[in-house]
Amino acid sequence: MKQDPINQPLSGQIKPPYSGYTSSKEAILQAEKVSVFYGSYLAVRDVFLDIETNKITAFIGPSGCGKSTLLRCFNRLNDLILGARVEGSIKFQGENLYDKKFDRKIEEVRRRIGMVFQKPTPFSKSIYENIAFGAKINGYQGDMDELVERSLRQAALWDEVKDKLKQSGLSLSGGQQQRLCIARAIAVQPDVILMDEPCSALDPISTLRIEDLLHELKEQYTIVIVTHNMQQASRVSDMTAFFNVEPTDKGGRMGYLVEYDRTEVIFQSPKEESTREYVSGRFG
């Protein structure tokens, strides 16, 4: 008997409240029963998740588990994909981002919830203009030189580029480009920074620099980071969400949240067997 996969009971699915962890009231982003579809294809199903202010939350899980997809819901970047649809609600400071009224203010949402991508994406502009671009389009009225310097300092890039701000952003090394993208994201003064595997294209030394940077940034920003690297998750994050994927009977693959807890709990005493297997490297 074929069942609609949407109404099919799921194995391994955890309904909130999560065993052992209840979210505090400081949640800046709250996902409630979020499902993401590409056309009729269900990519992520029924995620309940609270992202806490000024913490680093890591999303881990095997490929195709929907962690990047979910991340892109937080700044509505999935809107750009034809046929993508989000169900449920994501509350940002208490307001549902998928409410109609945000359709016209989507730029404001994206300014306040910044994003850094897997591959560095510097614009083909000077280093200075790379930072200034976001500020300009968002109507920044203050001193641009000061903003550029402050952003580059926060991204630990200032000392390396202060003498060549006129050079193209593409002339930098991969690690520097990624820190430029972080500086660019910081420059528009967001509340949250989403990071989609920001270190996966970088060498280990550049990766370490960015991890150090994350620790400094969380003083001011809330950070959500998707990573394939479990050591990275355990090193940098306060909270960890483990996602898994299971085949649907339509032949697709559907991601879901397995367990969400403090990072040390996820890595040392997870409640779920699949979490334990994943973090100990037995699959994925």
């Binding site: 991508f117 614009f123 671009f133 994201a185």
Partner: peptide, 18 residues
């Protein structure tokens, strides 16, 4: 021009025209 560049701009709050 790669889509990632466009997404980079959108993620900063740019409109389509910007």
């Amino acid at each position: 021009i790669p889509g990632s560049l466009r997404q980079g701009a959108y993620a900063l709050g740019a409109t389509k025209r910007e």
